[in-house]
Each structure stands twice: as C-alpha cells, then as structure tokens.
C-alpha cells in the first residue's frame, strides 16, 4: 500500500511530504509508544503509528528503519522534530484517529505487522 493510500484511509494531513521518487509500498505497520518496542520487534521498512511526537521518535525511526510516521489524535510535532524528519527524509503525517482506530482501518485494508527475526 502506498503512502498516498494510507494517508487517504486515515484522513491524514501531511506534515513532512515524501520525496516524489520514493513511493515504496508498505506491507508492515508498528503501533507503539514505547520506542524499544519498535527497536526490538519490528521489521525494517514499516510504518509507525504513535502518540509521541518528540525528536527522539525520529531518531528511533531512523535506527529501526521505519520509513514513515503517523501521529494520532491530530498531534503535531514541534519544529525540531519536523526539521529532523526532513533531514532524515522520513515523511510525517497526522491523523484525527486514535491508534486503535487507525490500526483497525489499516488492518482492514490488508496491512499486517512483520516481525524482526
């Protein structure tokens, strides 16, 4: 599923847009607020759904190989987080839904969680 499709399902607002050339399809999603959860379990190239918006979330994403982040409940990151995401080329979105609903909608659309070995 492409970011454009994900964004539409989640009625999401784009905060940091993906590079035009970089439209890799997503197969795996990680819903988490605990950063070690992302680092411990999840396969690279996943989408992260989270309620945290601080810069260290972007760093976690970079280390874990997360390719895009959706913030829930209309949360908007601060300028530092946005700047870091632009620098690391990690697209950011904000959805009005909570993590449960956002996860439910993407699961319904066929996405799953792929685990790290």
């Amino acid at each position: 599923m492409t970011l454009a499709e994900i964004s539409e399902i989640l009625d999401a607002l784009s905060i940091v847009s993906p590079e035009e050339t970089d439209d890799v399809p997503f197969h795996s999603v990680c819903s988490a607020d605990l950063m070690s959860d992302v680092l411990y379990y999840h396969a690279p190239n996943s989408l992260l759904i989270t309620g945290l918006t601080q810069p260290h979330v972007i760093r976690t994403a970079e280390i874990a190989g997360i390719k895009a982040i959706v913030f829930v409940l209309n949360k908007k990151p601060d300028a530092r987080t946005i700047e870091l995401a632009q620098q690391k080329k990690i697209p950011l979105f904000s959805t009005p839904y909570c993590t449960y609903t956002a996860s439910g909608k993407l699961y319904e659309a066929g996405l799953r969680s792929l685990r790290d070995a």
């Binding site: 950063m35 959860d37 945290l52």
Partner: peptide, 15 residues
C-alpha cells in the same frame, strides 16, 4: 511517558 523505560533496553542490546 517519553516512550522509554519499558525494560527492553538491556535485552535489546544483548539480542
């Protein structure tokens, strides 16, 4: 509340 301290750090380093 910042998303850390869930007791996964050391196990993750070892893993």
């Amino acid at each position: 509340e910042l998303g850390w301290g869930a007791g996964m750090g050391l196990p993750n380093m070892k893993k």
